[in-house]
Amino acid sequence: MNDLLLALIQAALILGLAPLVTGIIRKVKALLQSRRGPPVLQPYYDLRKLFRKSSVISSDASWITSVTPFVCMIAMMVAALLVPVFITASFGSLGDLIVVVYLFATARFFMALAALDAGSTFGGMGSSREMMISAIIEPAILLSIFSAALIAGTTDLAGISQVLVLGGTDLLRPTLFLAFAAFFIATLAENARIPFDNPATHLELTMIHEAMLLEYSGKQLALMEMASMTKLMLCITIAWSAFFPFGMATELSPLPVAVGLIAFLVKLLLFALAIALIESSMAKMRLFRLPNLLTGSFILAFLAVMSFYIL
């Protein structure tokens, strides 16, 4: 019962803070470009605005288009229940890390279908590119998470973080660093960030993720946007809690929980800053060079697993 309550609180935290992270990344990018930029809370305002609007649906679209925003959002909400945030507890009986990865895959599958659904050209291009990229990141994500699971001896996320926190610096092995690096690259790809995709572009021909959302408007768009912001937040949370959960509370008492919360917020900020810096300092890669970088991520994850057995 306690676990469920904690999972619910942590999921609420993830959902509630997700737009803030996107807002912080946008703000930092704007400042780096010598712009003032929109307020940090702008994503919340945008969502509120979109939720008040009605949706326009293409007359060629089938039920897939109407169902997809809910599928995406629900997948992210369920995933949020499985990820520990500030305390090493989650609704683990519902599923483990592998379930999280496949919840992402479910959302992506429906998103790609919905993009094809209305028959628009950009949607089709977006789907095909997204599928090309996801075919390569999925193994990289799984493999990098496996290496953390190998160390902890469990695939339950809360279990992994518990083992790592209790084990302390003894368990700080090269495996974790390699796996974290692989997961970081995969996170950028999974969330359509530069150098994989440009979240700020208006050029339909270059889009990957955004091209799949072009047909959406109003409430449906709000759900899709919320789902992608939550996904970014989830990836960041998983990156810290699966590889470097240090600072996380292991018991339910005020001091550790406070430390856990602060550690989480600091890590969140660090990750957001890193994304903003990367997005500002490099260009988007050519589409057909993306597999090279993703393969790099896969190799890092592979090395992480190997190093676990060798070292």
Partner: peptide, 16 residues
């Protein structure tokens, strides 16, 4: 040109 490669810092520099 810089903007279309998503190199926004450079692009903003030129726009300034």
């Amino acid at each position: 040109i810089a903007l279309d490669t998503a190199f926004t810092i450079g692009a903003q520099h030129a726009f300034i």
